[in-house]
Simulated scan of single mutants.
Amino acid sequence: MSVIPLAFINRGEKAKIQEINGGDTFSKKMIEMGFNKGTEIEIVNNDRGPLIVAVGESRIALGRGMAQRIMVQAS
Score class of each variant (00 low, 15 high):
48 R>K: 15
67 A>N: 12
69 R>N: 05
11 R>I: 08
69 R>I: 10
49 G>A: 06
68 Q>Y: 12
53 V>I: 09
54 A>G: 04
10 N>G: 10
73 Q>Y: 08
32 E>D: 05
53 V>T: 05
7 A>L: 15
18 Q>E: 15
40 E>I: 07
65 G>H: 06
71 M>D: 13
54 A>Q: 08
12 G>N: 06
39 T>E: 15
61 A>M: 09
69 R>Q: 07
66 M>Q: 14
56 G>E: 01
9 I>V: 14
55 V>E: 14
32 E>I: 08
8 F>V: 14
16 K>H: 00
39 T>M: 06
8 F>T: 11
50 P>M: 06
52 I>K: 12
15 A>Q: 00
40 E>H: 07
4 I>V: 13
11 R>C: 09
31 I>A: 05
71 M>Y: 09
39 T>V: 10
50 P>Y: 12
14 K>A: 11
23 G>Y: 05
45 N>M: 10
31 I>T: 04
43 I>R: 02
40 E>T: 03
9 I>E: 00
55 V>A: 02
68 Q>E: 14
23 G>W: 04
37 K>P: 02
31 I>G: 02
38 G>D: 10
25 T>C: 05
24 D>F: 13
37 K>A: 10
52 I>A: 11
66 M>S: 13
18 Q>D: 14
25 T>G: 12
34 G>C: 01
4 I>L: 01
33 M>R: 01
29 K>L: 13
61 A>I: 10
8 F>A: 08
45 N>G: 10
27 S>Y: 11
53 V>S: 01
61 A>N: 10
33 M>Q: 07
44 V>C: 00
32 E>F: 01
57 E>F: 09
33 M>F: 12
68 Q>M: 10
14 K>R: 13
29 K>M: 11
11 R>E: 15
43 I>E: 00
51 L>I: 00
45 N>E: 15
36 N>R: 07
30 M>N: 08
74 A>H: 11
63 G>K: 09
2 S>P: 13
18 Q>L: 06
53 V>Y: 04
22 G>F: 09
74 A>Q: 15
66 M>D: 11
5 P>V: 02
28 K>L: 12
23 G>E: 03
27 S>L: 01
67 A>C: 04
15 A>P: 05
7 A>C: 06
67 A>M: 03
34 G>N: 01
15 A>G: 09
45 N>R: 14
48 R>C: 12
11 R>L: 08
6 L>K: 00
13 E>M: 15
63 G>F: 04
65 G>K: 07
58 S>A: 14
74 A>M: 14
43 I>K: 05
41 I>N: 01
36 N>D: 14
10 N>D: 12
63 G>W: 10
38 G>W: 06
36 N>T: 04
25 T>A: 14
70 I>R: 03
28 K>F: 10
6 L>I: 02
30 M>L: 05
47 D>C: 00
68 Q>V: 00
14 K>T: 15
10 N>A: 12
16 K>N: 07
41 I>W: 10
13 E>D: 09
40 E>F: 08
75 S>P: 11
16 K>D: 03
71 M>V: 08
5 P>A: 03
57 E>H: 09
22 G>Q: 02
73 Q>E: 09
53 V>Q: 00
7 A>T: 04
44 V>A: 07
50 P>I: 04
60 I>T: 02
54 A>T: 06
48 R>W: 13
9 I>N: 06
14 K>W: 05
75 S>M: 11
19 E>N: 11
39 T>G: 07
69 R>K: 14
